[in-house]
Design a protein around this nucleic acid. Structure first.
Ligand SMILES: [Mn+2]
Ligand SMILES: [Mn+2]
Ligand SMILES: [Zn+2]
Ligand SMILES: [Zn+2]
Lengths: 142, 142
DNA sequence: AGAACATTGAAAGTGATATTCATAAACATC
DNA sequence: GATGTTTATGAATATCACTTTCAATGTTCT
């Protein structure tokens, strides 16, 4: 999986005429080893602990690249921080978010997905993406 | 409807020991007459056109009050602006958002709502709110 | 009216994201 | 492996959308 993603990223780099750098390699390693929903700041702090010379701006720009390359997706859970989640080929999921401890649980529900498509169609919309988040208290928090 | 909401707001004002002001009355009038999903800036510009002496901060604070009073709800469509939508007693809806022209269509789907509850329950979550938005091209844009 | 308290608007502050720019690094070519 | 061209980096700065401060003003109660 990690190998596949590293390959996908270097292909992207090559295709775009960009350059391989130590920083990008390092940040990709940390991203692939990270929680599935990391803010820029969180990832930056992890990276910086081992590589104090890598700057915030580089982490910021590299995460954008990951998104562009299809390895990551930006998500917003309404806490004012943009997070980047891992993207796996052909997979889609939505989220349960604990409003108390921040725990995030991923789920898939094909029936809901299908109904969403029907709603869009019935209003004449050509669907591109959707977002669905359920906020509440996780089992540990109630 | 407008009468009911004005009453609800003045009740809220009284209950909280706040004060009725010309600005609040004006902003409420403009809010009630506005699109169902307005950003602070948009409403401020509308208000300012007729009342150049009302400041941004007052519009900002008054919209927060409307939300607290249950007349409005903050929503985020990912364009970096907080919007305030009208709230009607006992009503819930989700949104279709056109990524090209910004058109917003509201819809209700009880089956999806029910399935969301089931998902939450099956993961042991005590549901508080949820958000569901479908992004795509509206009929006019494709 | 006078006292007590809330509101207002301009300006300043905040926090996250985005950009600038001089320097450094990558890499195609010699 | 040195050279030249292009891209990347990181510190600093800018931006953007709020959010708060504070002195002046307005509202409400007695
Ligand atoms: Mn996820
Ligand atoms: Mn709505
Ligand atoms: Zn929790
Ligand atoms: Zn449209």
């Amino acid at each position: 999986m990690k190998r596949v993603k590293k390959k996908a990223f270097s292909d992207f780099i090559a295709r775009k005429g960009l350059k391989t750098t130590r920083q990008r390699d390092t940040i990709l390693d940390f991203f692939l080893a990270s929680d599935r929903h990391m803010s820029i700041e969180e990832l930056y702090l992890k990276v910086r602990a081992k590589h104090p010379n890598i700057g915030y701006a580089t982490v910021y720009r590299t995460l954008k690249l990951f998104a562009e390359a299809g390895l990551a997706r930006e998500i917003q859970f309404g806490d004012g921080q943009t997070r980047y989640e891992h993207v796996n080929e052909g997979e889609h999921h939505d989220h349960l978010v604990c409003t108390h401890c921040g725990t995030i649980v991923e789920f898939e529900n094909p029936v809901i997905e299908k109904l969403q498509d029907e709603v869009a169609t019935s209003h004449g919309f050509l669907i591109e993406t959707h977002k669905m988040e359920i906020y509440g208290l996780c089992p540990k928090c109630h």
